[in-house]
Design a protein around this nucleic acid. Structure first.
Lengths: 338, 338
DNA sequence: ATGTTCGATCGAATCGATTCCGCGAATCGA
DNA sequence: TCGATTCGCGGAATCGATTCGATCGAACAT
């Protein structure tokens, strides 16, 4: 079922079939109709590999994800889903490639095998070898996240520093003087995970600006760790009256531990942070938080990548998103305990 | 940077380069060394499209996922991650294709464009047009899940009927006489979602066998719906003393609503079901449940697909998993309320 | 010394598309 | 009616690999 078969049945040459399909040269209405009929009848579609070989592009983009060993977070899942969705809308296919760990063969295969026209890179670290590799390979790519010095690359990212700062200001406005930051896991931060570092920086700056005292905790991405973290904060810093977090997965634990400690939200303790809206809305009471528009970010990344592929020499574009803090009901005026 | 370039620099013909790479014909040690040196120096990798075109296989498998519009569940995410991981281990790449909704162009492109050697199909319905399509296209595929009549296809699935039946028997052994099933969403079940139907069947059969009375509820995949569902059960069937569920995402809501109602688990109310272990372990108290080995299932699906591709004429193989119910502490002897 | 065998390598065909070049027929203006 | 232009289409080269026969020189037996 190749183009030659179609040509034979329609009584024309292969090139004519190709031109009717692409429309790059006029074809008379009668032969055109005849060819399309045969194509419909045989359910023909051009072989994607042959086409890619000749055209030099694959109409496919690579999506580089962290290895499965580290459970993907909900936010990362949203990225994947929205990238796939946006790509499908643009008639692009998505080739998944786990990287990190022992999966660098997969990454290399995708890069140097010319299987993709461009790459979307998730989970970028402040220093990231994959970015260097892609730049040297000359393959267009867009980061979801960014490295420490990222002027030269295309990316879309969430402005964690600004968002956490806004949360701190919000808490300060409510009279809180002692606040805590619940960050992502210590390993992640130590590995140069950008959001962790930038959230901490924004937290420190806002705390200093408002003359508060702030403590920061690292916390693994699960309910149990969230509980443990709140317990540690209450024990080690009983003066703390509010927390801000970028750790969505810890939220259920935070809620549980505060309940267990007999602290009502927001009467006795305020909670805020940065989280996808479904986390915020499942919190009780609903979480005052900056809602990360993960779905939109994935779509934007595909957009950027498409233009980067189309115009490889164009100067890189960046998109730093800082959605507003949605006031729900998990923060309130400070109230002195005991 | 193609094979011709390598051949020129090494002073040999293209075929010799190809044979050193594939080892399908002997090459003398000296030229072999010379060629490999050039390859290393230039960082050459064969063009995947050209190779696929000639060989007639792509070393790529397609993973068909539900569209992003419906949020993927944690279990589905585990499938995706483990499939990608297992494929990478087998030096296969994974092409993602959303299907359903308006994304059938993507599905068709992957199938008829010969972009993949085989397909893994997620979220199979009892009647599923994609299965028919793949069969008629003659493309090897493995389902994660299965259709109503599934003898003729390859699949790996969880035996929801048996697992839910075991949960019911366990509850009956503890003296419970009135039990409820919390299923997935009504739309999903109405659309012919296999696990929903089979869980219900297993529930009904076990309830009958033990002479219990059982009610079943559909419930959307989120915390809030879980709460609402428990409230409805307590209101409409106050005699119920235990629930079994296959709805992981509803578990936090189930827990919350029971707490709110002043019912202690497992003293006043028992909860059990089928759930990935991290859901079970985040429940409080830890959930007695059959742990779905999603990670293993993804890996098995890749295995099956690989053998199906290698031996297309072999009779289909199936894998029906029924992991044991892990006794944790969310079930206990019945106790009459009021 | 001559014919044979065998190992190492080369040349050319092939996979299935796209695209440039050019040919014949139809159409046009004068 | 004749040369020029246009229109529609076919032929062949090309993309970058794999693979099958063919070749060539060396080693071997007779």
């Amino acid at each position: 079922m190749n183009i030659g078969e179609i040509a034979r049945r329609a009584g024309v040459s292969r090139s004519t079939v190709s031109y009717t399909l692409s429309g790059k040269r006029p074809v008379s209405e009668t032969t055109r109709r005849r060819i399309l009929d045969v194509i419909d009848e045989l359910d023909y579609q051009p072989n994607a590999n042959a086409r890619a070989l000749k055209e030099g592009r694959t109409r496919t983009l690579g999506l580089v994800i962290p290895p499965a060993s580290s459970r993907l977070t909900d936010m990362q899942l949203d990225f994947v889903a929205s990238v796939v969705d946006a790509a499908a809308r643009a008639d692009l296919d998505v080739l998944l490639s786990p990287s990190g760990g022992d999966h660098d063969r997969s990454f290399e295969r995708v890069i140097t095998g010319r299987r993709v026209d461009g790459v979307i890179l998730m989970e970028i670290r402040l220093e990231d070898a994959r970015v260097t590799r892609l730049q040297q390979a000359g393959l267009p790519f867009v980061g979801i996240g960014r490295t420490a010095r990222s002027d030269g690359m295309w990316w879309v990212d969430v402005d964690y520093a600004t968002l956490i700062a806004r949360c701190v200001h919000h808490l300060a406005d409510l009279g809180h003087r002692d606040v805590a930051l619940i960050n992502r896991s210590a390993e992640l931060v130590a590995a140069g995970y950008g959001p962790g570092h930038r959230a901490l920086a924004g937290f420190a700056e806002a705390v200093a600006e408002r003359g508060l005292t702030g403590v920061d905790y690292c916390c693994a991405d699960d309910t149990l760790a969230g509980e443990a973290c709140i317990r540690a904060i209450l024990r080690e810093h009983p003066e703390v009256t509010a927390v801000a977090t970028i750790n969505e997965a810890a939220l259920p634990g935070i809620q549980r531990a505060l309940e267990t400690a007999g602290l009502a939200i927001p009467r006795d303790f305020s909670v805020t942070g940065v989280a996808a809206s479904h986390w915020a809305e499942n919190f009780r009471p609903p979480l005052t938080a900056a809602d990360v528009p993960a779905i939109e970010m994935g779509a934007q990344a595909v957009q950027l990548l498409a233009t980067s592929i189309a115009t490889p020499e164009a100067p890189p574009r960046q998109l730093l998103l800082a959605p507003a803090v949605s006031l729900r009901s998990s923060t309130g005026p400070v109230r002195v305990r005991r």
